[in-house]
Amino acid sequence: MLDSLSLDQLRVFVAIADHGSFSAAARRLYRAQSAVSNAVLNLESVLGVKLFDRSGWRPQLTEHGQALLVDARAILARADQLKARALGLTQGLEAELSVVVDVMFPTAQLVDLATRFQQTFPGVLLRLCVEVLGSVPERVLSGEYDLGIQGSLPDIAPELSSHVLPEITLVPVVAPDHPLAVQRKITIDTLREHTQIVLTDHSGRTRGRTFSVFSDLRILTADLGSKRAMLLAKLGWGFMPRSFVEDDLSSARLSELDLAERQPRSRKMPLIAIYRTDAPLGPAGKWVLDMLLAAEKKPTSRHS
């Protein structure tokens, strides 16, 4: 009997529940009230349960009706998603978009981007990955990911198209009871005497190279969360994205170091959107790139 279940019957069922009456649902669906009533009767027959109590002035969902309404909404949502994906595929829309982002990319911005993407492209699977340094371009160059947001590594491979995004503000921080926290105009020679927590990766692109590293005493990690934990534990000092430690600074869990001098690279970090030149972005990928560039008043392409 369930083979005779139709999406139209489910839409009528949901419309009655949402609008409170058979007549209101009929007006909403541009149908005759008799057609709406027949659709519900047929659905109840197929399911073998009574969905509405019709004894009162307005139909009321039965206990079974309330339970099955959740399933009906889910089925209709999946059906709409299927139709949207099929339509998108016929128009060249990607079935899946994969994006790899540098660990320095603000988490709140990533969540907002994913939320808006889901609302705009409900039928496209979004696959995200967080990497550090040379691992971001490696993932894009290998074809594993369509779009990358590169940050820690300043070099752009010639095979990649790139667009400069807004910079990330970096701040040197340390636990408030670390010896460096009370010093003023800290010199590079002084920094060398204390352990620095440094981000690293396993890609060959950064072998033998360091970025904003001043100390000979180092703890290496590839994860921003573990770096923060080690800073809080007084294991050393390090540069962090200000957005990532804003709450720690305001609550005095971390302190900003007073450095005597800072190189431009240690103050700001440019973020760069990258993708393979021989694999142009589709509609969903272009939308993501446009959203990333929208934060910049005058977006600049470094390679076209």
Rank of each mutant, 00 (worst) to 15 (best):
G148S: 05
L110Y: 08
S55Q: 07
N38M: 10
T115R: 06
V245H: 01
R116V: 01
S251G: 05
P299W: 03
G65F: 05
L259R: 03
S266W: 02
G123F: 09
P59A: 12
T300I: 09
L125R: 08
G285C: 08
D146C: 10
V171W: 01
W57N: 13
A84F: 05
G238K: 00
I186D: 02
L87I: 07
L289I: 07
E246F: 02
A114W: 03
R209S: 07
G148A: 04
K83S: 15
Y145S: 05
D53N: 11
V99N: 02
P137G: 05
A67V: 08
I16F: 05
P241Y: 04
H19Y: 11
D278W: 15
A273W: 05
P280H: 08
A17W: 09
F52P: 01
Q109W: 13
N38E: 08
V213S: 08
L113K: 05
D258N: 07
A233H: 04
A77W: 14
N38L: 14
I272N: 04
G225C: 02
P158V: 01
T277V: 07
Q118F: 01
G148T: 11
L224M: 09
V49A: 00
V288Q: 02
P283K: 09
L281V: 12
D258F: 03
T200N: 14
E246V: 09
S162Q: 10
V288W: 07
S212K: 05
I168P: 00
T90F: 13
G204E: 09
P299Y: 07
A95K: 13
T190M: 02
E138Q: 12
L180P: 04
A67E: 15
F214Y: 14
G225Q: 06
H202M: 11
S34C: 04
R192H: 06
S98H: 10
G236Q: 01
S243P: 00
T62H: 04
S243M: 00
L199D: 12
R54E: 15
D3C: 07
V70H: 15
M104Y: 15
L133I: 14
T221S: 13
N38P: 02
T107Q: 12
T300R: 13
V40N: 08
P264D: 07
S142A: 09
S4H: 14
R116Y: 01
Q119K: 03
K234F: 04
S212I: 06
